[in-house]
Design a protein around this nucleic acid. Structure first.
Length: 332
DNA sequence: AAGTCGTGGGT
DNA sequence: TACCCAAGACT
């Protein structure tokens, strides 16, 4: 990870930029390192420090975050940067308790920033640590109920020396050796004390309460293109699914969506539909397309000139609609 | 305090 | 295909 300071340098007293650490930890929430790497690089280039980010336009930040998911993180990223500038003189607070008060920073991220950026002895508890503790102590109680117990075990094990290295090491252990499937117990530095390895239960831990299957919702998306090439788009409400992101005007998403075109036009249904899976439901979007005259008046949304429109600024579900619509409009 | 909130990769 | 999973936070 390019934002990480190697252990040798850390032992020599070099600590990473708290802003870069905070940025990485927010991006890494429920997100893989592989997916984060390019976004972290892009954000650090666009906004090199917290003051620059605090001064950024909301729309630019949301567009830059497009594709990474969990868009509340981007909204809170901006809120947090502005709070650091307004309430902390542009300097990141260096304690768990103060970090915890900031938007988008919860127990994990507060502990991670305090430990990694400030070498404070705080206990990070992410999915990796939960798994490592469940195995090390052979805990069979299922998550998420077992989280408090696993947190206590992790806290009791946290050493006072090199807190930042330790925090990252436990997570690295979970990410590379104590993996969800096929844990590499044979090369694990903790194979000696590991109770689950001794009991032969490592691969079956941690247990999790079963989740119900994801339902399917349906909807209609309207892609209108004006004579000058402009696209009719709409900024979604700040709260809720894809909050604050750009999208196509559409129907509700439900079992039986009600048609809701943003303007009167000669709509044509596309044969293909956009399919996308969110965390808790599948979505199947029918697509209606129309060419409209230059003086068309939209009841919802606003026309974005072709030169200003970047499909990469759309969340993935909306980009899938765009891809299908353009291939149809251009006849390939 | 259970539900909500994305996406891409692995199996 | 259909699930699982990822350095969680917010309501």
């Amino acid at each position: 990870m390019p934002w990480r300071v190697p252990p040798a340098d850390r032992q020599a007293g070099v600590l990473p930029d708290p802003y870069a650490v905070w940025m990485s930890e927010v991006m890494l929430q429920q997100t893989t390192v592989a997916a984060v790497r390019d976004y972290h690089r892009k954000f650090m280039a666009l906004w090199p420090d917290v003051s620059a980010l605090a001064a950024a336009d909301d729309a630019d930040v949301m567009a830059a975050w497009a594709g990474l998911g969990y868009y509340a993180r981007a909204r809170n990223l901006l809120k947090c940067a502005r709070a650091v500038v307004a309430d902390h003189g542009g300097i990141f607070p260096d304690t768990y308790d103060k970090l915890l008060t900031l938007p988008g920073i919860g127990p994990y991220t507060a502990a991670a920033v305090a430990a990694i950026a400030f070498d404070r002895s705080e206990t990070v508890v992410d999915g990796n640590v939960e798994r490592v503790m469940a195995r090390l102590y052979d805990v069979h109680a299922p998550l998420p109920g077992a989280k408090p117990q696993l947190t206590d075990l992790a806290a009791a094990l946290t050493p006072p020396e090199r807190p930042g290295d330790y925090a990252q090491a436990v997570m690295d252990l979970g990410a590379t050796i104590c993996t969800p499937r096929n844990p590499a117990c044979g090369i694990c530095p903790w194979r000696g004390p590991c109770a689950a390895r001794d009991a032969g239960t490592a691969a079956a831990l941690p247990k999790k309460t079963p989740k119900k299957k994801t339902p399917t919702r349906f909807g209609i998306a309207y892609v209108a293109r004006r004579a000058d090439g402009a696209w009719l788009l709409e900024k979604r409400p700040e709260k809720g699914l894809l909050g604050g992101m750009l999208g196509w005007p559409g129907s509700d998403w439900s079992d039986a969506p009600a048609p809701n075109p943003p303007l009167d036009a000669d709509w044509t249904s596309l044969p293909a539909e956009a399919r996308h899976t969110f965390t808790h439901f599948h979505l199947r979007l029918k697509i209606e397309v129309a060419f409209v005259p230059q003086d068309a008046a939209a009841q919802r949304g606003q026309f974005v000139p072709a030169g200003d429109f970047r499909p990469a600024a759309l969340p993935t579900a909306m980009r899938k609609v765009y891809d299908l619509a353009t291939s149809a409009l251009q006849g390939d």
